[in-house]
Design a protein around this nucleic acid. Structure first.
Lengths: 195, 195, 195, 195
DNA sequence: CATGAATGAGCCTTCATTCAT
DNA sequence: CATGAATGAAGGCTCATTCAT
């Protein structure tokens, strides 16, 4: 064993970068193994096919992975206000997609899912769960209908995602943009609150 | 001459559909010409390369194409209120991307631009112009800072785009979703109005 | 059109030779196209896959192809005696498999059919039809049970086939061997004739 | 040591089955070791190469292995008549090839010998020896020319071999078919006997 | 304008073999 | 004796593009 347990990891790492830069189709297995410094055969020792690796990497950039706090039932105790909680979620989200070419991969994944049913399925599940859970959390903070919460969370999410394909067209910093988006959502929720 | 002047158009049409379904890389020139009922050579009579056709089709699904009203200086006379105007823009946008596989192509384009500088350039321009023009229009209706208008329009746009990759995860109709998004934006703008 | 209708034919011809010499698996598409003087792509213009070409060539060496007289209803008028008819069939058979590497291909086909159901199916059909038709012809010459005719024809056929994998171990000429085999069959049939 | 001295044997056994089902080329070392439950390296501990194993297995299905009685100088004392002796030889032959995928392997071997000189050599030797020895035995029973005996034995052998690639096309049992073939041979020999 | 046979670089994948442990 | 990660040559196949007709 030359690099105990590191070969597979290295392949995934360089593949992630190549896929991000060139797209899933244009990045070749040849390039991946060359950059990873392994032989072609080694690739197929760890992955049954290029498609298998694509799936693995695509699954890892699902939006639900970007908001782990949404899964933690006790997290809200640290955030007394909805505003602080949304800011926290937003930061998680933005920093997740800012790392390791994930934003680029996310858009490649969105393009990919049309021809990879497995990816499409996972995306739809991930998306549903994310929206529903987000809405549930909002409902815990403020007394609004589930639908109002859902619309609000969707707009919140949409804006964050949009940031990644429009950031070059604007001059807002992540931080500032997030603050403004949260404000918009809160304005709406407060006006929707049932008295 | 079988279909005077129609050959090129037919190629674009079938290519659009194939690109939407299979992605720009996976749809082949062979499939395109087969479906268009022309010979391989004919394709290269109208397009210098597959990439040329891709660019042409990619350019046609830029978001700025989806809101022609934004270019028309006299359109606002028909929409006395900001709400009615945003509803109009939203309908334009949603109906544009609902037709002819444009929503699918839009996401393929977003993936594509990483490796096609020409597409990237156009997208950034289109996006900047769209956001800036949208903000300008909002400013014409209501007295808010340009930045507030920009954030609002961006959220408006982001939500509409998001609708196309989350519509399967939700139960909202286009119409209803649009109404709700406009309401969120208006809530925010009214609270941001400078008195 | 450089070689009207000849390219495909040339590929089949050189493939036949290569398959015969190296076996279906060991002869590569690269070798075939190199020897045929065409590009790799050209191969796939005429054959969907290597397997398709293999099937085509395998079908052409089925034993039934080696005895066309068996299909001709009027042929027996030229051969007044069973002996002369069997000699004729035998010559047809031996000369068929002596040409164009067919004997070698026949044995490759016999090995191949275990893993290619389509070939297996065709072989079993071809074999059944050949045996049954041969027996029917014998019955037309001499009054024996169909079973006796069947056994006789099978032994006749088996001996001819065997000639191709044992000819190097013996010193018999085709002609002489055939004469002797026919004699054996006739001896048997005459002793089996129902009086 | 898990199974003292059994590893090599197990490899041969599973390889035999895989080779029979998939052919020598299509069965891989990977499959063999997986099915044998040993590591890749272990295979190369017992065999210098895949080809070595192929040779070994190919040698074991040579037709001469199927008639051990032919090597035993005293066996004929148990079979007073030529008929009983031929029946005995035939049974030996048929039961040999009915066991352990040997019939399948025999045809793969026949295909293989074109590209493996060592196998070709052995096959020709085995075949010559078998035919000559068979003819010699016949001559010991009945007073015919060596050539008549040779032809007879060849037809006997050919029919038995043919049984293995035509049995699916007929309805004869092994036993019955053998009896009929022996009868044909005897008819011929008796008519050829020198008086 | 239109054709379609021909091209060949390049892709994904397989598999016999090696070697450090 | 035994392991299994690593290798890389070689295989089958695809596809954008050209060009003679």
């Amino acid at each position: 064993m030359k690099n105990p347990g590191k070969t597979r990891e290295r392949i995934v790492r360089v593949a992630t970068e190549l896929f991000a830069n060139k797209g899933f189709d244009r990045a070749t297995v040849d390039e991946i193994v060359a950059k990873a410094g392994v032989a072609k055969g080694t690739f197929y020792l760890y992955f049954r096919s290029k498609e298998d690796l694509i799936k693995e990497i695509a699954f890892d950039v699902m939006p639900i992975m970007a908001m782990p706090s949404l899964q933690d039932p006790y997290i809200t105790v640290n955030y007394p206000t909805l505003e602080s909680y949304l800011i926290h979620l937003g930061k998680e989200f933005l920093s997740f997609y800012s790392k390791g070419y994930r934003a680029e991969l996310f858009f490649h994944m969105l393009s990919l899912r049309r021809r990879m049913p497995a990816v499409d399925e996972i995306y739809k599940q991930a998306c549903s769960e994310l929206l529903r859970e987000g809405a549930r959390r909002i409902s815990a903070y403020i007394k609004v209908s589930f639908e109002d919460a859902l619309i609000s969370f969707q707009i919140f999410l949409a804006s964050l995602i949009h940031y990644f394909h429009a950031r070059e067209c604007l001059d807002f910093s992540e931080e500032y943009f997030l603050k403004r988006v949260v404000r918009v959502v809160l304005h709406h929720l407060k006006l929707s609150v049932s008295v």
